[in-house]
Every structure is written in C-alpha cells, then in structure tokens.
C-alpha cells in the first residue's frame, strides 16, 4: 500500500514537471556588432576613454524598456551578450577613432587627455524612441577641462528589440559626433 502511494506521488510530481511550458529562447545582443580594424593615421593627440558610468538600473544583463507611463520594464527574453558599460565604451572608442583622423582613442593610456562619459538614461521606449542622456567631460593633461550635458533621441522605424538595439548604437554614434566636435 505504502509502495503504491509513494509511486503515485512520484508520478504526480513528474507529471507536474512534464507539464511545464517550454521556455522561449533568450536573445542576446551586442552594440558593437560591426567591429572594424583601426586605420593607420597621423596621430597628434592621444585620448583615454574612461570606463562608462551607468546608473544601477542599467547595470544588468537584461535590456531595459520604458513604457508611456514612465515605468521601466526589464526584458526577460532579451539580454545583453556582454557587460553594457564595457560595450558602450568599445562603441565610443571605435566610433571616435573612425571620426577623428588626427587622434587615437584608447581604453588604457598613461599620459593622455581623457574623456569620461556618464549615462543617466539609455533605453528604447514603447513610444518609438531611443533615449540617450547624460554628460561627458574632456580633461586635458594641462588640467583644463570641458564638460557638456547631452540628450539624444532617435526614432524607431520598426518594432522589436533587434531594431531598437541598432538604434541604440545609432544614438551612441550621435554622441561620439558631439564629443568629436569639442576635441
């Protein structure tokens, strides 16, 4: 009797497990999906791009989305493939290197001018926009510095995260162009 009861309970538990819904696969995204090799150029100045400062809500593997009532939603099935701050830094370095012919931008450098970017907002919205805001500071070796706030808005042309990630990169490119103008 006891044996048959145990068998029944085990069967029910296993049945419960077997009825679990099969999870949708998680999609992973990177912002610098199109890496390019550095071009040889005449360098007159060197810049170090400091690690990007992100707010706590962005410092996580899942993509954050904002709805029209200003609530943030953390996606479950859409994640960043790499640490977001590191990826943004790579994109900025790569785009600045492409944009400016007379300077080299690096992640590590001892005797360089430096660029520090702090992000306050960086996410797509359900209203068809990607928001990127914060401020950047350019600090020269002679201790002079320049800082500037920025607010960049890029419209989404398609639904979905894949397109949103592309536009997030476009927002970052717009930011590098702004920084480049001040160098």
């Amino acid at each position: 009797m006891i044996k048959s009861s145990l068998l029944l309970i085990t069967s029910l538990v296993l049945l419960g497990c077997s009825t679990l819904e099969t999870e949708k696969p998680v999609s992973y995204y990177v912002l610098d999906a199109k890496p390019s090799a550095l071009i040889k150029k005449r360098i007159r100045s060197l810049y170090k791009v400091n690690p990007i400062a992100l707010p706590d809500y962005l410092n996580q593997p899942n993509i954050v989305l904002r709805d029209q009532s200003q609530r943030l939603h953390i996606a479950y099935y859409h994640s960043w493939a790499d640490d977001l701050a590191s990826t943004i830094r790579r994109v900025i370095i790569s785009e600045l290197n492409n944009a400016k012919n007379t300077a080299r931008f690096k992640a590590r450098c001892t005797y360089c001018d430096s660029i520090t970017v702090t992000l306050d907002h960086f996410y797509p919205t359900t209203q068809g926009e990607v928001i990127l805001s914060g401020f950047y500071q350019i600090e020269k070796r002679d201790k002079t510095s320049y800082s500037q706030d920025f607010f960049i808005k890029v419209d989404l042309d398609e639904n979905g995260y894949e397109h949103a990630v592309k536009k997030m990169r476009a927002a970052l490119i717009a930011l590098t162009l702004k920084i480049n103008k001040q160098l």
Partner: peptide
C-alpha cells in the same frame, strides 16, 4: 519549483 507561465516581453514599438 512551479514556474508560472511567463508572458512575452513588452517590446519597443515603432513611431
């Protein structure tokens, strides 16, 4: 133990 059914993520919409 009991995974609740998860809805699809809220998605970014085009303008």
């Amino acid at each position: 133990i009991f995974s609740s059914p998860r809805n699809a993520d809220l998605e970014p919409k085009k303008k």
